[in-house]
Every structure is written in structure tokens, then in C-alpha cells.
Design a protein around this nucleic acid. Structure first.
Lengths: 366, 366
DNA sequence: TGCGGAAGTGAATCCGATG
DNA sequence: GCATCGGATTCACTTCCGC
């Protein structure tokens, strides 16, 4: 830690929000001065028409001007420019996080590689409460992707292995993180009572990122600051931050938010702990995994009924189709039925409850 | 379905493994003949090491940004070539799956977009038993990424929504799939007792992919066939496959494997159907058949509105005339309305949904 | 104050057959 | 090709309101 470092450090506009275009603002900062960059760039969503929920309410789309690009080419030029500015800012051992969805993350990832960033992990944020796919035309888009990369292959990047292991109840942290989206009181509102920003990220996500890859006193830059989640968590954790945001409305909300944040607030630490309840195992998984095969027959425990397994994990009995529970109930003439305890399969001439297979899967999961 | 389709179909080398380079082999097949492509391309190809310029001059170690670019460029050229060949092969409503890790998936995803494929989802295969990160320098790499894309934006791609919902015990399938890696008896060994292929995919993964996005009788191509997981699952599920594999050792293992695979019986391949597949019943038919009579009144399910049936099967409410859907939408001030579930008629003083009558007619049709 | 039910909502590339 | 229109489609939360 020589004199130069100290001087440069003091020149940085620490713990403030810069106004303006992120590339110009980054270029105004001294080279090699930042420990970590967290970036949540526009995703370049290409939404066509309106979308309604089955109850006819309208989905509030992300249709802001800042998310519009004329073409992939324009988006790539933008990505190239801000990543170049970002790389210049990083210290030799610095690193970057970028978050995105399938609309943009592949382009960002390729450009990171092109510029010589060194990928350390891609991380999946699995949303515990995502918005469903209302029209039933695709899979529920239940995750977003983060890329964690060091400035160069030889960078001695920061990784607090033990801290993350502790966060994960003593076992190594994996590349998939289950966290809820930002809702409720954490979700900032404007004066009209509407959400202040369409894509506010949860503090729990930033908490994990900053605990994992920075140390207290590090300087964290967020070139797409928005309403300042990165700044808020950095302040709580005793890291310095610099935000860049060109929309005045977002800056205002962020300033107000940051004023009320205190260091070492433990609230964001209390991420909804994984429920100790037994994980749900869909019956279909037994079929996919080959523990039972399509065409195989199941017998009811009482021996009075049987049904055949189909490729999608449903059963087909006499004139009845549906889940293990539905078919069991129908055959028994009962209002409901726990298929797991009702059905058995035959192995070596003996009836074995299918619940045994579920227990096997659950054992593997622990 | 004319003669041409039939002839082309018969010309395909169905349920066999082609020897040779995947691009040449693909180009030898007829255009527009494939329903689905599943591809697990290599990602270590020239990505690290073996760094020579095209003229074979040695690469300066200092110049490592350029090195990476050079090797990435080679990989991109390869990706470009095989994706182009793949797109040519797909039917207009065809689709592709590609699986990869952070080493290559960003480049593949960007190229898919560049070539005009239309991304439908990125899917995360969340491994339930990944290899830990032994050195503790990064996060446990616990997932791989799949991209599902249709040939073009306007393709009417296949998606068996209800079947996947059934596989997931009644709630719609998400973009994160928890499945174990391929181990145990499923993991193929060579004569020396070592694993026959370094990255054999689990059949459960292919099961889900094929149930989701193909129908029985579809043609599935796998240009990087390896030990033939795609073929094995396709055969079980009553889909036709074409494999391409240039390594003789893998082809041998795959041939042997496929010989022992049996197709599931036909009825178990049928999968839960969507309501959209049901025949359309015009509301007017209920009136024609006398199930409802002109002049009779319908009440909305919520009890707030009523309307009178006219002889032509339209409704008339307060200042609104039109179909059951149009009148329902107008009265609710909603953008659209499913009249079948919105309206009820009275029998013995009780409200009965008109959809019950439609179900009666549909039952008669079978 | 507590509880039960209704209402609201989230980075979404979200229809398809018929005329 | 484009306009029209039938009609299919949602999960895990949260807050708020009424009793």
C-alpha cells in the first residue's frame, strides 16, 4: 500500500452517485482503481404485444427507453464499450460480476471472453418466486444468470471461501443460488406509490456477491446503479461504493435510500432460510430417472386396482387418467388419495411401495 | 402430407449412426427434414493451449489477449459452421437444444441469435451430485446450461406444456431442472472398465427434453452423438433418431447400447393433452340442439351480469350484442373473456356452467 | 390484536385457426 | 399477408381489508 495508492484512492468519489453516461463517467475515473464491478446492464428484451394474466390483469412490462436497442449489433457495440471502460478501471487483481437473462447474457459473456476477462464461474440465481408463464407456451423463466470473471487470467482475485461455506450451512457454496425476488417493503416505491424501478435486485443477491468476492474497505463500482442496491449492501458491509446512473429519478430514490442505510445492518443476512421441510419430489422424476418405466404397472396396496405409467409421469387406469393421486382417488371413489402410499410396484414378485423410491431420491439430495 | 414429404422421409437414414465430420454429414442430409436437434458440442476444442497463429508462428506469451481471441475465433468459426448446417436441416417449425458450460455456451448462444434462431428458454441443469471444487478457489460448478431455440421467430415449435406440468406434479415446469449426473449402471464403460465417454449425459435429461419438445414419430438429430444417449431415449420414446459421431470407439459403444433398448408400449407414450387440442364446439350448437333455448338468460359466474340468448347463438346484454366471449369481455371491461367458463345457466335454481354442455357434446363425439 | 380471504404483482422476447 | 375472433392460460408470495 504505497503512497500512490493512497493518493489515487482519495481522488475517487467514494460513496456517491455519478450523473451521466456510464462509459464517460467510467473514463473520468482513474485507471486501476476499482476492486470489484457489479453490473446490471439493460437486457435488451424484445417484447411484442401486451401480456395479460389469466385473470385478465395486465403485466407491467419493462418497456423503458433505456432497454431499447435497434439491433444485436448496436447492443454489442454498447457492451463492448462499457466493458472496455470497466476493464480499464479494475485493479490488476480486480473482478467483475454481470447479471443478465437469455436475451443478453450470451452476448455479454462472449464479449467478456473476447476482451480477455477470465471466467471464474457462471452463477444461476434461481428465483424462489418467479412470475409464471401465463400462456403456457414455454417454461417458467425462473432464473437469471450472473457471470463472475477476473480482469485477467493471472489476477489474484478475492474469494472468501470459508465465509460462503458458512453461509451455506457448512458445505461448499454451489453455482446455483436460490433467492427470492425483490418484493414487499424492500421494493422501493416512488411518490405515486408505483415501483420506483422496474428491475430492482434483491439485497440478498448483492449480499452474497459482496461477501464472496470483496473485503471490507474494497471499492465497488456499479455502472448501472438504478436505485442503488449495490450501494446499500456495500455500505452495510463496510465496503466503499461508486454508483453511476443517468436517470435523475433513480438517482433521487437511491440517494434517499442510502441516507437511511447503516453499516452492519444484519437484516439482509437473514435470507429466507431453506425450509427444513422435505423437498418435494414429483412422481414424474421417478420415470425420468428410470426407476420406473413407462408401460410398467402399479398395483394399489389393497390389491384391488392397477394402472399403467405413462411417459409424462401420469397414470392411466380403467377410463381414468391423471396423477398418482387423482387416479388413486378415482379408483377408490374417494375425494382424495395420497398416491405415494397408495401405489406399489413389483420387484421380484413382491409389492414395493413407490414411496421407497421417493425416499431414495431425498436421501441423495442430502 | 404429399408424396414429397414421404419420399424425403424415407431417404433419411433413420435410427442409425453416421460416421464422419458432423458438418459434412449434416450437409449430406436433405434440407428441412429434421424436427429437433439436440447438440452437445465439444468445448475444449482449441480453447486452451495449442495456440498457434494460422501461419503456425509461435504465439508470444505476453500477447495473451490476442491468443485468446485467436482461439476463440477458431471456436466461433466451428460453431458458425455446424449451426448453419443444423439450421438448414430443420423443418420450418423445427427447434434446437444446445448444452454447454461457461467455457462455450456464451459463444454458442450469441451465434444462435446471430443466425436468426429464436430463443425460447435457457434452461439450467442443476446437478444434484456435482463434483466439488477441490481447491476451494471458486464456487462448486454445479450446473450446465441448455438453450432451447426455434428455427425462426415465427416457427410453430412443439411444446407439450401439459405433459411437463404433469411431470412436475401439477405446477408448470420451470427453467431450472434438478437432475443427477450420469453414474452407476447407466454410465457406460469400455472394455478396460473405464468410462466410455467423458461427458455422458443422463437419460433423464434427454427424457425431459424429448417429452417436452417432440411428439412420437418425430425425427431427432444429434450431431455430436457420443455414446448415444439421445438415440437411446428417442428409441424408448418412439421417436426416430439420426446420430453423427466421428470417433469409432464411441460409435461402437452406442451401437451396442442401442441394440438393447426397447421402445415403451404405445399407450404409455401418449401424454397429457392440452385443451387446445380438443375439437372446437360453436356455442350456437347448444341452441340448435335445444340444450339451451333462445330467450333463456345466462348469468355470469360472479353473478354481476346477465344476458339473453338469441336464436343465432349470440347474446344480448345491456347495450351489447355478440358472441359469448365478446359480451362477457364487454360487460367486464376486460380485453378478452372465455365465455365458456364465464357464463352459467339455471337448472333447478342452481347455476350450471355452460362448459358442462360443451363437455357433453365432446363426449358424444368420441 | 388476530385471522381469513381478497386483491395485487413480478426483467416476459407468451396464440392460432379461419377467412 | 393481414385482420378477425374464439378461447386458453398462473405461482408464490405480499399487503390490505373486514370482522
Amino acid at each position: 500500500m504505497g503512497k500512490m495508492t493512497k493518493v489515487m484512492h482519495e481522488a475517487l468519489p467514494l460513496n456517491s452517485i455519478l450523473d451521466g453516461d456510464c462509459i464517460e463517467a467510467m473514463n473520468s475515473l482513474p485507471e486501476g482503481s476499482i476492486d470489484l464491478i457489479f453490473a446490471d446492464p439493460p437486457y435488451n428484451l424484445q417484447l411484442r404485444g401486451d401480456l395479460h394474466r389469466p385473470d385478465n390483469s395486465k403485466v407491467d412490462a419493462v418497456d423503458d427507453a433505456w432497454d431499447q436497442f435497434a439491433s444485436f449489433r448496436k447492443y454489442d457495440e454498447f457492451t463492448q464499450a462499457w466493458l472496455k471502460a470497466a476493464k480499464r478501471l479494475l485493479k490488476p487483481n480486480g473482478a467483475i460480476w454481470v447479471i443478465g437473462s437469455y436475451h443478453n447474457i450470451f452476448r455479454v459473456g462472449a464479449e467478456l471472453q473476447n476482451q480477455g476477462f477470465w471466467m471464474l464461474n457462471d452463477v444461476v440465481w434461481r428465483k424462489s418466486n418467479p412470475m409464471p408463464n401465463f400462456r403456457g407456451k414455454r417454461l417458467t423463466n425462473a432464473h437469471e444468470t450472473l457471470i463472475w470473471a477476473s480482469k485477467t487470467e493471472s489476477s489474484k482475485y478475492t474469494f472468501n471461501y470459508e465465509a460462503l461455506k458458512a453461509l451455506n450451512e457448512g458445505t461448499q457454496m454451489r453455482s446455483d443460488w436460490v433467492l427470492p425476488i425483490c418484493t414487499g417493503h424492500e421494493r422501493l416505491k416512488n411518490d405515486a406509490g408505483d415501483k420506483a424501478h422496474p428491475t430492482q435486485k434483491p439485497e440478498s443477491l448483492l449480499h452474497r456477491v459482496l461477501v464472496a468476492t470483496t473485503n471490507p474497505g474494497d471499492v465497488v463500482l456499479d455502472p448501472f446503479f438504478g436505485t442503488g442496491t449495490t450501494g446499500a449492501v456495500a455500505k452495510k458491509l463496510g465496503r466503499d461504493f461508486i454508483g453511476i446512473e443517468r436517470e435523475a429519478a433513480y438517482r433521487e430514490v437511491a440517494e434517499k435510500r442510502l441516507k437511511n442505510v447503516r453499516k452492519f445492518d444484519r437484516s439482509s443476512l437473514e435470507v429466507t432460510q431453506s425450509k427444513r421441510a422435505e423437498p418435494r419430489v414429483p412422481f414424474g422424476q421417478l420415470v425420468e430417472r428410470g426407476m420406473l418405466t413407462p408401460g410398467e404397472e402399479l398395483w394399489s396396496l389393497n390389491g384391488r386396482h392397477k394402472a399403467k405409467i405413462r411417459a409424462d409421469g401420469t397414470l392411466i387406469g380403467d377410463d381414468v387418467k391423471g396423477s398418482i393421486h387423482q387416479v388413486g382417488a378415482a379408483l377408490e371413489g374417494a375425494p382424495s388419495c395420497n398416491g405415494w402410499t397408495y401405489w406399489t410396484f413389483k420387484r421380484d414378485g413382491k409389492k414395493v411401495p413407490i414411496d421407497l423410491l421417493r425416499q431414495q431420491i431425498r436421501a441423495e439430495m442430502n
